[in-house]
Simulated assay, not measured.
Amino acid sequence: MATAITALLSILGVLAGALLQHRLSRRSHHESHLLEARNSAYIDFLEAVSLVVAAQRMGNKQREIEQLARLTHAKARICIFGEEHVVRRLATFWAAGATLETEQEILAFTRFCMDIRKSLGIKDKAFLHSEVSQLLFAINPARS
């Protein structure tokens, strides 16, 4: 009788372990796909912004329109897959004008980039904000 109980408990333990492993594996797989979709949306958005600005500066209207469509698609994906604070920063950038022509727009974009870094789990020191602005736009913003 004791052997049967031991065998039953062993089988239940194996089943519980397998179920737990399956559940954790599934969650990890889901989180991995979400992170991949989020990263792709962020990269596509940043690329499209750069290409739109380049097309505008070159006066290439056709290229600008193509990249604006790509930008809109990436923006929609950020709204779906992005973390809340990143979506809020994107909305702030968009509300500021989203042309990267004024200081307010540049600062909003820099904050958006910093929130993307935060969303990806990159822990920055406070001084990096100024360095990112300097690298992107050759300006030194006030800290936010």
Rank of each mutant, 00 (worst) to 15 (best):
R38D: 12
T6H: 03
S40C: 04
E84D: 12
V86H: 05
K75V: 07
R143S: 10
L9P: 04
L68A: 03
D44N: 11
F93M: 01
K118D: 12
A91I: 07
S119E: 11
Y42G: 01
M58P: 02
K75E: 15
V53W: 15
F127A: 05
A74Q: 00
V14E: 14
R70Q: 05
I78M: 12
L34F: 10
E36A: 08
A2S: 07
G82L: 00
L46N: 13
V132C: 00
Y42M: 08
Q104M: 10
G13A: 07
S119C: 05
A74G: 01
A91G: 08
R70C: 09
M1T: 05
I65Q: 14
E101R: 08
R143A: 06
L71S: 02
L71V: 05
I65K: 15
F137N: 10
Q21C: 15
R70W: 15
I5H: 05
T6C: 06
S10G: 15
S32L: 07
L100H: 00
I5C: 06
E66T: 01
A7C: 10
G121C: 10
R77T: 06
K123M: 07
F127L: 10
L128E: 01
R27Q: 11
L51N: 11
I11T: 10
A108T: 12
L15Q: 02
T6S: 04
H85S: 11
